[in-house]
């Protein structure tokens, strides 16, 4: 009898469960289609281009040319310098900013948040040209510096590495601050109070309690900043003054000046691989550090 009762209505219930699963799967379908058409297909197209000669034969010549060209490695170095520099600046500027946001009242924080996010809502071109206006020879900062007599000659702030870095940091800072802020906001205020009550100064408290607890947010912010900036184009193109040639600029150059589509495609695949390798490494490292038994 028990066996009988166990199967009562079982088929119908199983069907219901399957229908439910199918329904939720179908919700994801549009985005899967978009990703497939918008991202995966072009990727295959680029891959095919990179392996084809102008006449359409399969070849590795694009890759050998790419990897034997000193300019490729130079651009990779510049790219890593820019991404690393941006990340460093984001850490130095973003962590205190996120801390400030997390430690003010929710009301003030949401207002400040709007200010932080404002740059994200303006076009990158507008922002980048804005920096040009501020940083150039007769720009705001140089006017102030020269006007106040601090320097006699305008300081070269733009059309070089410095200018490019400033533009990139400005772009990435909100993107870094968001996960960092979220992680810090989730820290129990009493934990910080407890540390203070035991005699920890603000700095010590920050170092021994807040930073370790916000590590997850900081790590994901860092990975986003570093990986995202590996493909930066507009900022170095406008603020680099032709001197700064990271990978994206080299790809554009290969494509539009040299008209070498195969080479550009191979370069694109190269960048993609670098992003993948660095991204996976960074995430792996972050996981490793987090899973490590807590330091004493």
């Amino acid at each position: 009898m028990t066996a009988m009762t166990a199967t009562v209505n079982a088929a119908g219930l199983r069907r219901d469960a399957a229908t439910e699963r199918r329904f939720f799967l179908s919700l994801a379908l549009p985005s899967l289609v978009i990703v497939g058409i918008g991202a995966i297909l072009p990727l295959f197209w680029i891959l095919q281009q990179s392996l084809a000669t102008a006449r359409g034969d399969i070849t590795l010549v694009n890759y050998t040319a790419l990897l034997t060209n000193g300019l490729t490695w130079r651009s990779l170095l510049v790219t890593l310098e820019l991404s690393g520099g941006t990340l460093l600046c984001c850490l130095v500027l973003g962590i205190p900013l996120a801390f400030l946001l997390a430690s003010t009242s929710p009301r003030t924080a949401s207002r400040l948040m709007v200010l932080v996010l404002l740059p994200l809502w303006t076009s990158i071109l507008v922002r980048t040209y804005g920096w040009l206006v501020i940083l150039r020879r007769d720009g705001l900062i140089n006017d102030l510096l020269v006007g106040s007599g601090l320097v006699s000659e305008p300081v070269p702030l733009v059309y070089n590495f410095t200018g490019t870095l400033i533009g990139m940091v400005h772009y990435m800072l909100p993107i870094f601050v968001l996960p960092t802020y979220a992680a810090m906001r989730d820290i129990d205020g009493n934990v910080i109070r407890a540390a203070a009550s035991m005699g920890a100064s603000l700095w010590h408290c920050f170092r021994t309690v807040i930073l370790p607890l916000a590590f997850g947010g900081i790590a994901s912010g860092s990975v986003i900043v570093f990986v995202y900036t590996l493909g930066f184009f507009i900022t170095p193109a406008i603020l680099g003054g032709g001197r700064i040639s990271p990978i994206a600029i080299r790809i554009d150059r290969t494509l539009s000046t040299l008209q070498d589509w195969g080479g550009a495609a191979a370069f694109g695949v190269f960048l993609l691989l670098i992003v993948a390798v660095l991204g996976v490494t960074a995430l792996g490292a972050a996981r490793l550090i987090r899973s490590k038994p807590a330091a004493d």
């Binding site: 040009l132 020879r137 007769d138 059309y159 003054g241 032709g242 001197r243």
Partner: peptide
């Protein structure tokens, strides 16, 4: 060479601003 420009608009801006 202070600037290696990439667009005509940029060259005009550089000339106009005295960059």
């Amino acid at each position: 060479v202070a600037v290696w420009w990439t667009s005509g608009a940029q060259s005009a801006q550089i000339l106009k601003d005295g960059e």
